[in-house]
């Protein structure tokens, strides 16, 4: 194995672990339930998921309206499956299947 790859993996891995672990040591017990920090943390989850969804979709956007068909079908399939089955797994698989099938059909 390359020494550079090992070093890069260990350095980035250590920082990533620290980013995930260190903030859990914050003492949140004394934070007022309606305080600003409490509200910030409560809003972080939905904001983070919306952000990650956007960031993952942006590279898939194509210039022409017709080129958006696979993306549109994939997203519609996720939404439909979510409301039909209430299952994240089925919604995810349905979206990927619809996306792939649309690309196959459109050639």
């Amino acid at each position: 194995m390359s020494v550079d790859v090992i070093q890069l993996g260990l350095i980035v891995g250590a920082f990533t672990w620290a980013f995930r672990f260190a903030p859990t040591r914050l003492d949140l017990a004394n934070d007022r339930p309606e305080g600003l920090f409490d509200r910030f943390l409560s809003a972080t989850g939905p904001a983070a998921i919306a952000t990650l969804f956007t960031a993952s979709v942006l590279p898939m956007l194509k210039p022409g309206l017709g080129d958006q068909a696979p993306l549109a079908m994939g997203m519609l399939a996720v939404i439909g499956a979510h409301f039909w089955f209430r299952s994240t797994a089925i919604a995810t698989l349905s979206g990927a299947a619809a996306y792939g099938m649309t690309i196959f059909v459109l050639g």
Binding site: A50, F53, M75, V78, H82, F83, A91, T92
Partner: peptide
Amino acid sequence: PALFLALLL
């Protein structure tokens, strides 16, 4: 993207 959309919903 499908997983993130499902999680968002």
